[in-house]
Design a protein around this nucleic acid. Sequence first.
DNA 1: CAGCATCCTACGGGATACTG
DNA 2: CAGTATCCCGTAGGATGCTG
Lengths: 137, 137
Amino acid sequence: MARTDEKVRYALEGKQSSGYTRETAAEGVEQALKLLEGRWKLTILFHLFGGRVLRFSDLERAIPAVSQKMLIQQLRQMEQAGIVRRIVHHQVPPKVEYALTDWGQALCPALDALLTWAGQRKPPGAANAAGNDSDGR
Amino acid sequence: MARTDEKVRYALEGKQSSGYTRETAAEGVEQALKLLEGRWKLTILFHLFGGRVLRFSDLERAIPAVSQKMLIQQLRQMEQAGIVRRIVHHQVPPKVEYALTDWGQALCPALDALLTWAGQRKPPGAANAAGNDSDGR
DNA sequence: CAGCATCCTACGGGATACTG
DNA sequence: CAGTATCCCGTAGGATGCTG
């Protein structure tokens, strides 16, 4: 009864690698994006890319606009997510460093793809936003 | 006086293609993500991928959980962003169709990368979240 | 130095009702 | 059918102050 071809694998534009449906694919990406959402996560992430290891105060200095609360909150969330690694040094003046996990590092190419995409916005010549209009008959 | 190597190009993990700094790269990705943020954008997007052209009511049916207001709002925002194309048919019973722009289609591979990344979470064997702890001395 | 707790505000987004 | 307008609420996120 139901059109089976409606739920057929669903090819991502041409590469039907994994068995995603439109819904699960959207959900999956949403999950992924949720991990990156948060006013400062990306900024932090980019500061950590490349195997850098920064301590809390370094990050505070690197991102002046962020409050301590936010910085910690975002860091902790990413830690929970398994994106960043927290390295605690038990010293009298506390010292905590943050670095990316392997998985966190793996985000780089994906974000790069996004960046590339963003950079391709509007091939100057083609106007296609306003004025689209056609007649059914 | 300023350490010039601090603002050196910034290599995205190995490919120092474009001239992004940590800040501009983060900002760029944030801009891109802003366009995709919104409870339903991704769902809509995935329904539109592959050159599909759906009318408003089709989308309503395809995404039962969304309200009209939200659906329109999200569609309009993506239209503004240049991701989706709005095709209006001037008929007595109004008919409006939505499709992706070329740029919108180009998002597919980027999202695919994200999806792939998400799928690689936690190589089962390695525990690296809790218990990280080292001593400075 | 690093981090937690509290308070407060802005905004995304849901329900509902009305219109061309 | 497609879209607009109004109201309402949950939560992200900012400021500030205290602690190990």
